[in-house]
Design a protein around this nucleic acid. Structure first.
Lengths: 240, 240
DNA sequence: GTCTATAGTGCGATAGAC
DNA sequence: GTCTATCGCACTATAGAC
């Protein structure tokens, strides 16, 4: 199992690669042609957008705000995207790719199905910890934007949920998990994972660290799908 | 235990009372003085606001949109609130009062602590089912608006969470529940309750009814805080 | 108590200089 | 590749007619 610090570095490294992908995919909209310049400015623009929309919301963030925050002029910004809507598409795209990539990499490392479930939960929490501004933007802002952005957000939700459903079904088929509704169980997992980045203020105010939260979520879920005798080894003997 | 249909009627009846309260509390901003007219129009305005912000977001909803939807003119609307910001304050206020009132009424009916927990979960789900537009607006939109609206949203979150924490602590003190972290457990409960109205599209697409969801959530939570022998009576023997 | 008309503001987006 | 200047538009909020 990877530690949070190693994890953090790994994700940061992947960020640039994905900006290069974005550059290729959105070649029509990006008027600048020198890859080095584009990637540098895209990273700046993305980070500024994430920061501003977290404070005042994406809708409320004007391109002028973005101009002040990035130091780029209005005209310069419009060389990187056709309009605000495309900007959020790019950011969602970037995050979705990264999430998929990392989640699969980590899960595939695990041989056992119980390890896979634990890793999927923990990795998702680590991801939302490192990329919390992106996760927040994708779920909280996308819903009132273009149909494309909404579809992206839903697809993302269902995609990661499917990962959990598959692991749960696999565990049930192997006889390791006992459950009769993998869809509802996966929905519960998704809900608590989402709470971690939607209510960050609550958890950080209480000084609850990501690993403590992860341990507790794993404890709750395993309580439902394993025999009690197995789970109680995991999270103390749960007395008092 | 109350049924969902009875519950629905009960909440609707309370709505008017609370509009009267709002009228008194926001007397400074509301220029119209005849209570009957005010209450009638407030209900119209609130419902229109909830509907429009659910479709396009509260920020994106203009007062013009609201004028078309309600049939009231721009000028008339501004006789009921000083500005858009105050409008959302009123709506939040209305919902918060109603939630508090109903939640306490239902919980107090239950003598046992296990029944209280079940009732609190089920009532919260019923409430968000009946008032889902309000719940959605309060959590999804309020965060990027005025400081007041944000504080309201946070207060609401912590308030209902506290209800669960208290029940859990009471159960532990009575020796009925076994748990070592009532705060994290309550946070998990809140997270799954919230998922029900944030991802309504997902559950309605899958034809999952509110009672099925409630049963499952109660099953999961009781699995964590009761002995397995007790919980398995509740949700089948959990075999597939 | 509600309407119409409009003032004043700030936005997204573009054209063309550098 | 980036900047400045500006256009046209939609918005919030108000003033005064009815």
């Amino acid at each position: 199992m990877i530690t949070f610090d190693v994890f953090k570095d790994m994700v940061m490294l992947s960020m640039e690669d994905i900006c290069k992908d974005i550059f290729r995919e959105f070649a029509d909209s990006i008027k600048i042609k020198k890859e080095k310049v584009v990637v540098k400015n895209l990273v700046t623009i993305f980070n500024a957008t994430l920061k501003l929309s977290h404070v005042k919301g994406f809708q409320a963030m004007s391109v002028r705000d973005l101009s002040h925050e990035t130091g780029l002029s209005m005209g310069a910004l419009y060389s990187y995207f056709k309009g605000k809507e495309e900007l959020i598409d790019m950011i969602q795209n970037q995050g979705l790719r990264l999430t998929k990539k990392i989640l699969h990499e980590q899960i595939e490392k695990e041989p056992g199905v119980r390890g896979k479930l634990q890793t999927a939960i923990r990795t998702h929490l680590y991801l939302s910890e490192v990329l919390h501004l992106w996760f927040y933007l994708s779920y909280m802002e996308a819903k009132n934007l273009s149909k494309d952005a909404q579809k992206n957000a839903m697809a993302n939700e269902l995609y990661t949920e499917k990962i959990f459903i598959d692991i749960l079904d696999e565990g049930r088929d192997l006889g390791e998990f006992i459950l009769d509704n993998s869809i509802l169980t996966a929905a519960v997992i998704k809900a608590v994972l989402q709470d971690w980045y939607l209510k960050r203020w609550k958890y950080s105010r209480r000084h609850i660290a990501v690993d403590e939260y992860a341990d507790y979520i794993i404890f709750v879920i395993e309580n439902v799908i394993l025999n009690r005798s197995e789970t109680s080894e995991k999270y103390g003997d749960n007395k008092n």
